[in-house]
Design a protein around this nucleic acid. Sequence first.
DNA 1: GACTCCCGCCAAAGC
DNA 2: GCTTTGGCGGGAGTC
Length: 844
Amino acid sequence: RNMLKTPLKQTATSHSVLTEIQPDCQSLTTPPKPRKTPPVDPWTPTSNLKMLISAASPEIRSREQRRELSNNTSEVPQAKYCLQEHLSGDECEKSQPSRKEKSLGLLCHKFLARYPDYPSAQNNFICLDEVAEELNVERRRIYDIVNVLESLHMVSRLAKNRYIWHGRHNLLKTLQALKKAGEENRYSQQVQMIKKREYEHEFDFDGERNEETARYFGSSEHSEMSFVELPGMEFHAASVNSRKDKSLRVMSQKFVMLFLVSTPQVVSLEVAAKILIGEDQLEDFDKSKFKTKIRRLYDIANVLSSLNLIKKVHVTEERGRKPAFKWTGPEVLPDIQDKKLETTSTPCPPPISESIPSKEQCSKNLFPLRGKQNFTRHPSLIKLVKSIENDRRKIQSAPTSPVKISASTCTDQNLPASPSKMAQVPAIAKHQLEGQSKKARAVKTKLSQSALECTLSSPEVASKPEAPLTTGPTQQPALTQPISACTPSHSSVSPVILPHTPSGVPYAIYLHPSQTHTVTTYSPSFMLQPLPCANVTGIKSINSKVLNKVTTEEGDSQTATDDPAKSLTANERPPMESEISPQRGLKRSQALQDNNLLKKFRSDEKSLDTSMTFFPSGYLIPLTQYIHGNKAGFSDKEKAGICSSQCTTYSSPIAGVIPGTTSELKAVNIPAFHITPLNIMLSPTSIGAAPVVSNSCLNSSNTSSVQSPSPTFLNFTLQHIGLIAAGVQVPSNPILQHMAVPSQPESVSRSSENTHVQEEMVSKNILQFIGHGRFSGKDRAVIAVQQPCVPREPQEPQAATENFFRTPGGPNTASSLSASSDGTNRTSQGTLYIPQRKLEVSED
DNA sequence: GACTCCCGCCAAAGC
DNA sequence: GCTTTGGCGGGAGTC
């Protein structure tokens, strides 16, 4: 039994840390002396949690002490007796925990505090009996927690009464899969539909509306969606199958999906419950069912809150104040595979990270198929897995693929395999007070951004010398990581030709539509800071008029209404503490733009900082041979940057590579625009964070020097990575390609007319911008965005509405994979118009 | 009174 | 047939 004892919180942590977490780990025979006052050690993982608990209630404190004692003395009954004696009488009565103190959230906190975020391979067993006993709760409650954790693949059932703890190893992968499934299920559209109904006071589930809604919900191919599994982590218990439709696991996954596909990532319980009911049996909608769903959602939400994935808020609308939850977990990008991403958005990856195949193998061994009915793997996952495998094969077989380098050496992953105390910091921070955990998230964000900043040094970074702008050789892998991590798994990618890299070598960046989507949806882990476009272009965004008001209990409020620049960050992104840095960066960037950039533009026309639109991730395919160490023509400043970075990474086109140095990269806020003369066509809504490549050669080189890629090479590449069909040929000069990137609007409604006006205004300003000398006539940046999907065409509203309900090509086609964008695209054309209303989100 | 969610019944599934 | 698992809804506690 001792062998299967629940794992201690990160056995590799320092002794003092361990002592804090599980005092009994020192010795099972000699109980440590009970401390009357817990030591205050800010570096221990649970000290702050304990402080929080103690602060919350003295009863909890005493209960905790009792539990601690009970843990320590499970084999020493005398201590228990002493404790009972100690807490006898009134004290004992007082120690009866109140209802609040028995909340599932608190219980889950305690549960999570027992296990490391990133457990090592051994000692990860959870014995439900023991846990329930030690936490002094019924087993029933533990099931609630475990079921939700199971839905995120943080635990899995090993045997009767026994689970295995995976921690957050699989979390990001799971979230990606969930997001994908949610997109395929068109949850964002369902949410919009529900909201629309709510607004119209017409959500009455009867008559015509009922039919329409039923048709709408039924239109989803995956309305009977089952549990989303990760490869190698399939469920085998029959109970899971038999009850899967109403299982807390599935509900939890669906609930998470709603967050992942929603923009902004705030989901009210009501909407979630309606969607979950709608999927089950719309026709049988009744209040009791609704109440039950709400109850279950509270259960789930409590656990997710403990995981810091969501946070309770209140949405105040005209119709009243509604409970809601806001996603505060990691930003999840679709179609990003492998652990590379995990390392990007995870502050401190697991010290011991097993390779996926070995993990799968391990899981397979743990869950041998016994001929029983298995969970149906979600179709998207099957595709995803195959795609991942294919891409991994391609990448790893690429001659100079940086993938392995990235995976093995990047950031914290190159920490020694043996867990160090430092490696545990994020895991430790997770269980600390909220402020502490937010700090940890800030670190996380910073880390992930620093990796990105290695690639694309934003103005924020440029203006911040202490920022990890200079990338030494050890950081070099990080440079390649964000891009190589974005190996597209689907077949629609937009190449962007960058004709003027500092080395004079043009590159084509092949962008997955989801990556262009990224530009518009602010993925904190990947995106550069959104910059107010008005500062550069003088254009105000009309896009961002989401009338949301987010107020936190602590008094920090972000009103995102009129100021488009603010609205971009405040509405699109959850106002997490972790984004303090980006927001500061925003201010800095604004200041920089005000004070430096414009001055620079005017006074330094010959400066080598000409900027081009660049996307955060994609394939950079060298169109000519990249000349290693070609630094000629760089300014001293740039040379300095180059010298410090030395990021001359080579790669196969497939694996992707950053063809420049960090100093050559700069983020300039070029808003969404559509510039015909330049063949620049970006989503009108991709205002804001447009990381660009600083092109030091733009003014000095000429277009004729740009060598077009070999058509054969280009076609081969595109076909190889599945971007175009085998028969399709890309013209030899992709620069002449002029295809629209489908707009990826936010959830904000706006008319296409306005969008058009906006585009024109932006175009004018950009042209003005160019006229200021940023681009000379012959050195114009030519960015051809090829969009393999159907170009956006004007649509009749009615037709668009119809299409809104029917995804042409089925749910697995490229168009439907970006279903949310599809829907919102049409929203932008006024077909699914959700009237703007005052929406206030306040945190509790 | 509405919101929140604990609690435990009890049925299904597992062993 | 006992145990484990977990759906479910009453109703208590809180706001």
